[in-house]
């Protein structure tokens, strides 16, 4: 049975779309057949991050209106044929589709894809309701900020009330050095509030911005980056592997910092 996962956060700008693009790509690289759906009708971005913008002909709205077949609207990625994107309509609003229609679309995709990732819009209104309606699991993306965590908490509650029980947390854009100086919430602080299992921690990385602007998911790039490794690890955990959390301090480390941490741990 295929896995239907919604990527959501409540707050905007925390990295839902970036996560969806990278997780989708990384799963496809592992040989899984993956469909990613942009549920952000009217403000679509997923196509940009995947670099597929110029290949969109039809969108989900046309499929629902019966103007084209589902496989005509799906955009196959040339770099990674296992990955397909179902784009959202840009000229419509969230009210253009209903939760029932989303369920139908996803059910159709689930017949031929092992993973269906749904990129949810920010907020908890109609677009969010549409995105979570077909989902069986959820990945909650948050940054270590109280506003993002508060919104994520609300979203977890709404997902529970909508019978999406299997939820995993991704803490995005963490700055280990700031956590060390007590200037940023730690992963533990975030988990204490949200109380859902942790899928992974993605460090703040400038390379993410570069990859977004280029339309090349980070996990595709040849040179390894800490954020790319973290995203790959998340995918491995999603597939049931036991992968230890990255030591995010490793890259910008010196002997003194190592010694200090050792000392802290002892006490």
């Amino acid at each position: 049975m295929s896995r239907i996962i919604v990527v959501t956060s409540g707050k905007g700008g925390v990295g839902k779309t970036t996560c969806t693009a990278n997780l989708g790509m990384a799963l496809a690289q592992r040989g899984r057949k993956v469909a990613v759906i942009d549920a952000d009708f009217g403000l679509r971005n997923l196509d940009l991050l995947l670099g597929l913008e110029n290949r969109i002909v039809y969108t989900a709205v046309e499929v629902l209106a019966g103007e084209c077949r589902l496989d005509q609207a799906l955009v196959k990625d040339k770099r990674q044929p296992n990955l397909a994107l179902l784009p959202a309509a840009q000229n419509r609003t969230k009210e253009a589709v209903t939760p029932e229609q989303m369920k139908k679309l996803v059910a159709a995709l689930a017949q031929s894809y092992e993973y269906v990732l749904i990129d949810s819009p920010a907020g908890i209104e109609m677009g969010f309701q549409n995105a979570i309606a077909p989902a069986r699991e959820a990945i909650i993306v948050t940054t270590p900020e109280i506003s993002a965590v508060r919104d994520a908490d609300r979203v977890v509650g709404l997902l529970e009330a909508n019978d999406v029980r299997r939820m995993h947390l991704v803490v995005n854009r963490l700055r280990p050095s700031m956590v060390e100086q007590d200037m940023m919430m730690s992963v533990k602080d975030v988990q204490e509030i949200l109380a859902i299992p942790l899928l992974g921690v993605v460090p703040d990385d400038e390379k993410v911005i570069v990859s977004t602007n280029r339309g090349e998911p980070l996990v595709l790039s040849q040179t390894s980056s800490l954020a790319g490794i973290a995203l790959n690890n998340i995918v491995r955990r999603l597939e049931g592997e036991k992968v230890p959390l990255l030591d995010l301090n490793a890259s910008n480390d010196d002997f003194f910092a190592w010694f200090k941490r050792l000392f802290k741990a002892r006490n």
């Binding site: 109280i146 508060r150 919104d151 908490d153 609300r154 977890v156 509650g157 529970e160 509030i193 109380a195």
Partner: peptide, 24 residues
């Protein structure tokens, strides 16, 4: 349950929560 942000419990009696009541 965990009372998450956005949940409001009103009750004309006492309330016992086995779990956390989160901010919000």
């Amino acid at each position: 349950m965990t009372l998450r942000s956005g949940i409001e419990i009103r009750h004309p009696g006492s309330v016992i929560v086995l779990g956390d009541a989160n901010p919000g």
